[in-house]
Design a protein around this nucleic acid. Structure first.
Lengths: 226, 226
DNA sequence: ATTACCCTTAACAATTTGGTAAACTTTACT
DNA sequence: AGTAAAGTTTACCAAATTGTTAAGGGTAAT
């Protein structure tokens, strides 16, 4: 299976365990990143936007439960699954872990086959269940499920056409979209609308989001700028 | 597998390691280049545009982390993967490395099979993921997706016709394009414009990009020079 | 039924880009 | 060197493209 698209962040304070897990996941083709405690996990996670975080419960500096709670409220981790690593004796943590918002857990001692099988299953579920509902670009989060856009945590309301246009542009920041392409994607093949319509919607988006986010390339089209 | 197209730049201050890696990669058919420190890596890398850089973390003159940060902001390395070489004891560097923008890392001591397998995987991914929207010639990067042109990292705005003309010339550096050919490609068959028009656009390109990049062949046409 | 909001269009303003002529410079050739 | 041809540059105007505003018709919610 080609897992190269999946990023997994492994968090544990013991280097032996990190390396052991890393070795087994790399072999499967996952992109593996490492952190040693909850705080580090959050810092690194914000940057790399992992698909899944393997989180040890017991850690110094910030334990897994606390880190998990924080991440569940952070839009940067909106599309991230969290799986706890628990020692067999820590049954209670399993419960506390689910209350903190974890999606699954795996018990130590870790068996490679179990680990890999479980993660494969979870990530397959992710692909099926979550067709990337949230799109995060710079300080902007666009959620196609709720039709909401956040800028620095502030909620902004967009009308449907505006939203779809913004979503399209933001789906590939920097890329210039021609009007023809925009019409086809946002309005569809049959619909016949005039070019100026796009301009007007662009203007409304700029009004709400700030001019700096939508760029014009004369003679070509528009682009989203992060 | 035919890896002859892939250029790999190996950077390490120890000659033994350089030779060891070089031997193993050459055997796989890669084009291997060598550098002894970060500064050298950047200088050589600018010239050869490697597909991948194997970068030792600990080095004199400029360490791997610093070199990596610089390269990540340099359009010359826009299409280059960076893989760190870390001693097993330097776990922290692994994380600092990712924060600096590395794409992967390999731990010393290096095992030939691991090295080769990992690099093959990374480069296969590169081919699949990046359908090269960027055109890099000398110190100039032309991106037709974002309609941006960079010279030594500095962003330059081009009007549409200028951009298209530049893109055409740069698509085959050194080749001389006749005015007739340029007219057909940039303006199309039907459009009727005077020869002098091309000259004017050439002048605008030279103004923005520097005279040295566009050459004139009297009686024939123009060419892009790297 | 009324209200509020959304989508679209038209009209006009503002801006950018493209094209040409004409003057000027360089090159090639006799 | 002198001359003609080719290329360069400047300045200006025309054309194309985009920005902005306002207004009408439609639709969904109250």
């Amino acid at each position: 299976m080609d897992n190269s698209a999946f990023k997994i962040l492994v968090v544990d304070d013991e280097n032996d365990i990190l390396e052991f897990i890393q070795y087994n996941l790399k072999k499967e083709g996952y992109d593996v990143y490492l952190a040693h405690n909850g705080q580090e996990a959050i810092d690194i996670g914000r940057k790399i936007k992992p698909d899944l975080i393997l989180l040890d419960v017991m850690m110094p500096v910030m334990d897994g439960i606390e880190a998990c709670k924080q991440m569940k409220f952070d839009p940067d981790f909106a599309n991230t699954f969290i799986v706890f690593l628990t020692a067999r004796s820590e049954e209670y943590s399993e419960i506390a872990g689910f209350q903190a918002g974890a999606d699954d857990y795996i018990s130590k001692p870790i068996k490679p086959r179990v680990l890999v099988t479980r993660l494969n299953a979870i990530l397959r579920r992710k692909v099926k269940v979550q067709p990337d509902t949230k799109l995060t670009v710079g300080d902007i989060v666009i959620d196609r499920e709720t039709f909401l856009v956040f800028r620095k945590g502030e909620k902004i309301q967009f009308a449907r056409k505006e939203f779809e246009l913004l979503f399209l542009l933001a789906s590939k920041p920097g890329k210039v979209f021609t009007r023809d392409y925009i019409l086809e994607k946002v309005w569809g093949d049959e619909v016949l609308v005039v070019d100026r319509t796009i301009d007007v919607h662009i203007r409304k988006i700029r009004e709400k989001l700030g001019d700096e986010h939508i760029g014009t390339v004369k003679g070509v089209g528009y682009k989203f700028e992060a």
